[in-house]
Nucleic acid binder design. Structure first.
Lengths: 230, 230
DNA sequence: CCCGCAGCTTGACTAATGTCATGTTACGTT
DNA sequence: AACGTAACATGACATTAGTCAAGCTGCGGG
């Protein structure tokens, strides 16, 4: 059963936060609450979607396996983020697999419930579209990065994003292990290591999970500079 | 004003085809119908979305400009395909720009109209989600390709997709110019040229806009083989 | 307390891709 | 028909990232 703290997180999630309390209560009371161990599968590619998933704690990765067995990480979610909205409402197979990359708490909202509620109040549809659009946007941003930036620049942007979230400014903790960061940024762990080395020259120090950025603007310039001008 | 032929195409579009005729008629009668020349801008990144767009003829590309001026092509649409659904319904700025890459006919459905219709019938929301999910899926597929395949392999998949559409089997026409194909596949035109050369060894002949594939299965094997095993 | 393994780093090498320069071809314009 | 331009091809070279191999390191289990 769900703790109140978990419900509070769910209420603040992008998917739910703009809904009237009454609907949120309905959804929360019918939701399934589950824990996952690190490495546990939440769902598999090609499986039929039966629920929308909201991460309450821990980290979840979405990824695709190519025919050759290579894994492409599509996104990584944490507390307050949801995924599977568009798939669940259409009863189609997931295009990706989902796996817990740390111990996780995940809330599952059964899709028939969401669908029936949506028929009563179209506002639900707008909320789902909001979440879906966020995912769309983040995929577009990733595509741009992959097509227009070098590995080291993508790492730089990744660090800059962490800085924005953590108010601390120039010192951040890497949120998950480097193998996963490498996957998320579309490179091999070895390349990530080397990218970190290169960033030393623009004032970035990495020690274990701890990153220190001496000059955020310099890092931003680096990330946005033309690869051919360096 | 719209020709009947255009309306017929619009009715068959993924966005509209599953809606009841009554709604389609309402939407078609309030839509804006426009022609665009090659190179003409349909909307710009950061502009606020006011409509959903349905391509009736020609080709449209969606792309992002990176801060350095490099252009990353996100997708390319043609007859019967729609874009901008999720953005329009949320009144947020477009994350991409749209440009006609050939002379085009495009239908614009004003978003307030769609929104008000959605309040009457939530089924509209499902249709919009269906289109949005298709885009999401195609972006995920693109990400996987970029992260897990070489340039030549992506070109091979591109050709295979053309084969599936054109019933003709092994002879296809390249649908738009090679610069755009290169952009769509995340490479420079020079690299595309070289990728085509490499594909000669697996039975692909390119002549102008015409591609001839001697053995589709061989090409498929090539596209799905492990890059490190070649 | 030591061991062993997984995560990570580093080096040497190779493959892939971008860059720049040059040349060709096709096509619309005058 | 001559011209100019944009698309495309190709060669030489630089940069980037992947591969393979070796070694380091911190943490949990015996």
């Amino acid at each position: 059963m769900a703790h109140e703290a978990q419900k509070a997180i769910a209420r603040q999630s992008l998917l739910l936060k703009s809904l009237p309390d009454q609907h949120i209560d309905t959804l929360l009371s019918h939701a399934i609450w589950r824990s996952y161990d690190r490495g546990e599968t939440i769902f598999l590619q090609e499986e039929e979607a039966k629920a929308v998933h909201v991460v309450l704690a821990g980290w979840v990765k979405l990824f695709r396996m190519s025919p050759t067995g290579a894994e492409a990480v599509v996104s990584v979610f944490t507390r307050g983020e949801s995924f599977g909205e568009a798939v669940a409402l259409r009863n189609v197979p997931y295009p990706v697999s989902a796996e817990a990359v740390s111990p996780c708490e995940v809330m599952h909202i059964p899709s028939p419930l969401l669908l029936s509620l949506m028929k009563e109040d179209p506002e639900i549809g707008v909320s789902i579209l909001a979440s879906t659009f966020t995912h769309l946007h983040s995929l577009v941003a990733q595509l741009e990065q992959l097509k227009a930036q070098t590995g080291a620049q993508r790492v730089a942007e990744f660090l800059l994003n962490l800085c924005e979230e953590n108010l601390d400014g120039c010192e951040v903790e890497l949120p998950y292990d480097k193998m996963l960061i490498a996957g998320r940024l579309g490179m091999k762990p070895e390349s990530l290591s080397r990218a970190f080395s290169r960033l030393k020259t623009v004032g970035v120090k990495i020690n274990r999970n701890h990153a220190e950025i001496s000059d955020i603007d310099r890092l931003r310039d680096y990330a946005e500079s033309d690869p051919s001008e360096k």
